[in-house]
Write a protein that binds this DNA or RNA. Structure first.
Length: 645
RNA sequence: GCGCCCGUAGCUCAGCUGGAUAGAGCGUCUGACUACGAAUCAGAAGGUCGCAGGUUCGAAUCCUGUCGGGCGUACCA
């Protein structure tokens, strides 16, 4: 479709350029609201009419003779006040689509793209907000890979931040536990810390004097080689593994896990600090509130200073983030050491370390960087970009993209279901922000567990004869599909007010609806094979024989055939559009719509029982085409494809 | 105060760099399993696109103002 549009556009430009003052931007090809009007539409007569001071409809009529003999175009006519509508040759179009299946027509544009996502503080269990982040980031990565880009997925581990300190403080000072005691804790460690963290938070609120001890621990951790650092490192490592397991459940993985401790240990910040000072991007404040701090000013926002280095000479998170961002572009002249963390499906996941070793690998050095971080951190992301700009890395600043999205919040109803108590003031709100500190949130594993449980009971109803392992596997795939579609169906600027009923639904606009569509198609092909020996080979010969004739179809079936095929053929445009706007709800809605069209088609037209071979073959090719398109978009969205369900 | 985001059907949301009659899902009501799997489908009801201006041949979409809501504006991340 992309190629076809390009062809038409260039041809028309060529044919009209001598007669009319036409500009390339006028030749955007759009879709008609209804296929009976035509397949593609041109609106340039409206723009031309202004320039030439003539009626758009007259211009359109006049132009049409110039447009004849376009390859693949059946006819062209004028509609309404001056639209030029193009009707494609359906047979040619369809067989071309079938032949170009699995051949991407998208072209890569970057040397290497880095995506940073997930980034969960390793001090408590992952929650639904983290799931949104990871699903968006992963989907972006899959789409870019489809486009042919070289993609590296990074998951930044803030293992030395205050959040980990808080939990270390809880273990050491509140629970009086040694490292050995902590190691003995059985069961879900991330859940244990979830509860401990909320207790620490309320303890600190009531005992402000403990603040001193807390900053002591922070310093010890940064220095290393002491019990505090050992405990913190144990906590973050164990929780990190829990997070990775959770993400594995929904099919999300990473290439490299950069650790903050490595950034500190390898003095990345020292280097960045030197650069920033040298270019006068930051300066020391001599008096006033920020006395003794190194600060940065944000462009356009006067009077506002962002502290990068605190008066006690420790660096803030943003400072480290600037250093990290510089490293991502290969601008720091420093590199991490890497060690394998574990293997996943034959692929090694690497983690950074500051201890030298012999592994020689190359990460970073991207030409484009996406940071998937929620919109509340826009200000900090701006500071990071500002840092690059101040260092005169203008290209890199422009290629630092904050993929922002709104938070996942909790509905009052879901709070009640979780038995969470909240203040009277909060009870007035429509929704409540997830808060790790207050322990307000739905843990990712809990949600996935509930989805799997529900899916399993549905599978049991429908396929009681299957082996229990098989049922569990199907239930898992359904749970994953439901969750991932749920996270993608909302536009990224829309706050998801989490509701269990919506999230656990398997009907209507949901992941399982999409999966069910594919299962139906599988079922048809399974039957075709069992009953008639009709397999993939038969389809390939059918496609390459080029003996399909659409003439056998009735008029109304031709309409339905064309509606579904034409819609499906737009999938690559949708992928591109989703990447450009970072709006994967487009891809989600597109897939859902295609499934709706298929399900309607399915009810209307039978395949196995069709006697007319010509009609039957077209129907088979049609659903084969839909199947291939669906498989492609599902895999980009990470929606698993069970054979049956 | 300043910055960013949101306001579309009873509810939850789509609606592209402006394009033809504003769409889904849920819920409500009416139908369809002796059928390639009903996790489905067909149909009905439901809208002054927050409000007011402006730009345009054309505005849910762009601009300005305004009202309502959310988030950010930490020597937390």
């Amino acid at each position: 479709m992309i190629k076809l549009k390009k062809y038409i556009k260039e041809n028309i430009k060529e044919k009209l350029k001598n007669e009319y003052p036409i500009e390339p931007s006028m030749l955007e090809i759009t879709y008609t609201p209804q296929l009976k009007m035509g397949d593609l539409a041109l609106t340039f007569p409206f723009q031309l009419s202004k320039k030439m001071n003539r009626k758009p409809r007259d211009l359109a009529l006049e132009v049409i003779p110039f447009l004849s003999s376009l390859e693949g175009v059946e006819k062209i006519n004028v509609a309404g006040p001056g639209y030029i509508n193009i009707f494609l040759n359906r047979k040619k179009f369809f067989s071309r689509q079938l032949q170009s299946l699995n051949k991407s027509s998208l072209v890569p544009e970057e040397e290497k793209i880095i995506i940073e996502h997930t980034n969960i503080n390793p001090n408590k269990a992952a929650h639904i907000g983290h799931l949104r982040n990871a699903v968006l980031g992963d989907t972006l990565g899959q789409c870019l890979k489809y486009k042919g880009e070289k993609v590296e997925i990074q998951n930044y581990i803030d293992d030395t931040g205050v959040q980990v300190v808080d939990v270390a403080f809880g273990f050491m000072d509140m629970e009086k536990k040694s490292l050995e005691d902590i190691k003995k804790i059985k069961g879900k460690f991330d859940y244990y810390c979830w509860d401990l963290y909320t207790r620490v938070f309320s303890f600190l609120e009531k005992n402000p004097q403990a603040e001193k001890r807390r900053s002591e621990i922070l310093k010890q951790i940064e220095e290393g080689n002491n019990p505090e650092a050992e405990i913190a490192s144990y906590i973050s490592n164990r929780i990190l593994k829990a997070h990775l397991r959770t993400m594995q459940r929904i099919g999300i993985s990473y290439d490299i896990l950069p650790r903050e401790s490595s950034i500190i240990g390898l003095k990345f910040w020292k280097k960045a600090f030197y650069l920033l000072k040298e270019k006068k991007a930051i300066y020391l404040v001599n008096d006033g509130m920020n006395k003794g701090c190194w600060v940065m000013k944000l462009e356009k926002e006067d009077e506002k200073e962002k502290i990068i280095v605190r008066s006690d000479r420790t660096v803030t998170y943003v400072g480290k983030d600037i250093a990290y961002q510089l490293w991502k572009f290969g601008l720091l002249e420093k590199d991490f050491y890497y060690e394998p963390l574990f293997k996943e499906n034959g692929k090694t996941i690497w983690i950074t370390t500051h201890t030298p070793n012999t592994h020689s690998l190359q990460f970073g050095k991207g030409s484009l960087v996406y940071n998937v971080i929620d919109t509340r951190q826009s200000y900090l992301q701006k500071i990071v970009v500002q840092g690059l700009k101040s260092l005169k890395y203008l290209v890199q600043a422009q290629k630092s993209i904050h993929f922002s999205y709104e938070m996942v919040a909790l509905s009052q109803k879901s709070l009640k279901e979780l038995n969470l108590t909240i203040s009277d003031e909060d009870k007035e709100r429509n929704f409540l922000e997830v808060s790790g500190r207050k322990g307000l949130g739905v843990k990712a594993d809990d949600l996935i567990d509930r989805l799997e449980e529900k899916a399993l009971s549905e599978v049991n109803k429908r396929n009681p004869e299957l082996a229990s392992e098989q049922k569990a596997e199907i239930a898992h795939k359904i749970a994953c599909g439901a969750l991932r579609y749920f996270m993608l169906k909302f536009a990224r600027n829309s706050i998801i007010v989490f509701d269990f009923e919506d999230a656990l639904s398997f009907e209507g606009e949901t992941g399982p609806y999409l999966q069910y569509t594919l299962v139906r198609i599988n079922s048809i092909f399974r039957n075709l094979k069992e009953r008639e020996g009709f397999d993939e080979k038969t389809i390939f010969t059918l496609i390459s024989s080029n003996e399909i004739s659409l003439d056998v179809l009735s008029e109304s079936e031709l309409v339905d055939f064309w509606d579904i095929v034409f819609h499906a053929s737009q999938f690559e445009e949708e992928i591109l559009h989703s990447i450009r706007s970072l709006e994967f709800s487009h891809l989600a809605k597109f897939s859902f719509n295609l499934c709706q069209k298929f399900n309607a088609y399915y009810h209307k037209y039978s395949i196995l029982s069709e006697k007319n071979i010509g009609i039957k073959n077209i129907r088979i090719l049609t659903i084969y085409y839909i199947q291939e398109v669906l498989k492609c978009v599902f895999s980009l969205m990470g929606i698993p494809q069970p054979e049956r369900m």
